[in-house]
């Protein structure tokens, strides 16, 4: 996994709350057997009109949104299914950070394993970010993972919470499976004490 340090970018804003994984990537795109190529289907049912052309009213299609690496969304982002296709699609489009007031558990875990950083902010900071982005769609936001700070376009900073282990893995590009497998002896010991009985 690529390591993650600091991202400075303008943001795309999709303000709806409870954006579920069926919106992020509808189920009909889950019939793939690899992780690549999902970016074009990100938010498919909101992003394209029924004739397949871009919906000009959807934020991802705004010209100012192009190249954004940060997504700002409403509360409880990523609720619904466990599909890791959701972070794959976001990363496939170019998003590296999602900012919201809260995230669904499984989505958060999946994101962290794919170099996508979920940043939880207070409602107050969220409002400030939305206002700044409204005033200037190219306003720059910085996310510094090592220091867990978010810098708003006005230069003010705020801390964001992150699980220390997830931070460590992201910063150093550490693969969690490798970490688990380093406990092979302990797993063996556990297994010998807990035989399968069915």
């Amino acid at each position: 996994m690529a390591s993650f340090t600091k991202i400075t970018s303008h943001a795309v804003v999709i303000p709806a709350e409870n954006i579920d994984t069926d919106q992020i990537i509808p189920a009909r795109f889950l019939k793939v057997i690899d992780k690549n190529g999902l970016g074009k289907s990100l938010f498919c049912d909101w992003r394209y009109l029924s004739d397949g052309t871009d919906n000009p009213d959807f934020p991802l299609n705004f010209s100012a949104s192009q190249g954004a690496e940060i997504l700002i969304a409403g509360d409880n982002f990523g609720c619904g299914s466990s599909r890791e296709h959701a972070p794959w699609a976001l990363v496939g489009w170019g998003i590296r950070v999602v900012i919201s007031t809260s995230f669904a558990d499984i989505f958060k875990g999946n994101s962290l394993k794919n170099g996508l950083l979920p940043v939880v902010v207070s409602a107050d900071v969220h409002q400030k970010l939305l206002a700044a982005q409204r005033a200037d769609p190219k306003a720059q936001i910085s996310v510094d993972l090592a220091n867990t700070t978010l810098t708003l376009p006005d230069g003010s900073t705020t801390k964001f919470p992150i699980d220390a282990f997830a931070q460590h893995c992201l910063l150093n590009g550490i693969d969690q499976l490798g970490y688990i497998l380093s406990f092979d002896e302990k797993i063996k010991a556990y297994e010998s004490g807990h035989p399968l009985t069915n």
Partner: peptide
Amino acid sequence: FGIGTSEVEHVLASQCLLQS
């Protein structure tokens, strides 16, 4: 509980999962 595909790989390989 439900897990993502990276975790499916973790469990296939190690029969274990990292959980807080």
